[in-house]
């Protein structure tokens, strides 16, 4: 029974010890905005914030998050980054998007004026098959500029 907050709300739901955080969020709590693309830590789709830091929820167990503050895409405020994604057509199927938003949110908080190189390096922890990344890079730089 991990106690944690998810998107600011205390959750109190049972989790078997082996339950992945990604499955706990998606199937136990119904927060299906976090996506699963590989379950081996490469694609980045499942990225959430654990205590403010981006983490792959497919590599964490729900019970490991005892006491943690977890934020998922549903918990992000719709702000400049979202608007920049829309303006730059930075998503197509949208399956990779949640993870990318989580990583960029944490990154832009720490690096408010990034270079293109730095943005690309952060994004290299995520796979997107649809966009060719350029519009995502543009959206991130645009949001940083705002």
């Amino acid at each position: 029974m991990p106690r944690m907050t998810v998107n600011g709300e205390a959750v109190d739901a049972a989790a078997e010890p082996r339950l992945l955080l990604s499955d706990f969020l998606r199937h136990t709590l119904g927060l299906t905005g976090t996506h699963v693309g590989c379950e081996h830590g490469v694609c980045g789709a499942c990225t959430v914030l654990i205590d403010g830091r981006p983490a792959r929820s497919c590599l964490a167990l729900a019970v490991q998050c005892e006491g943690a503050e977890v934020v998922t895409v549903e918990g992000l405020e719709e702000g400049v980054l979202h608007a920049a994604f829309r303006r730059h057509f930075a998503l197509q199927c949208g399956f990779c998007t949640a993870g990318i938003l989580m990583s960029l949110t944490a990154f832009l908080r720490e690096t408010p004026r990034p270079t293109e190189r730095e943005v690309r390096e952060v994004l290299s922890g995520h796979l997107c098959r649809c966009t060719g990344y350029t519009p995502i890079v543009a959206a991130a730089l645009d949001a940083a500029d705002a």
């Binding site: 927060l31 299906t32 905005g33 976090t34 996506h35 998922t72 895409v73 549903e74 719709e78 979202h82 994604f85 829309r86 998503l91 949208g94 399956f95 998007t97 949640a98 938003l101």
Partner: peptide, 11 residues
């Protein structure tokens, strides 16, 4: 895009 960015897609 709004729904997808908000995590409200339905896959």
């Amino acid at each position: 895009d709004r729904a997808l960015l908000g995590g409200r897609g339905r896959f």
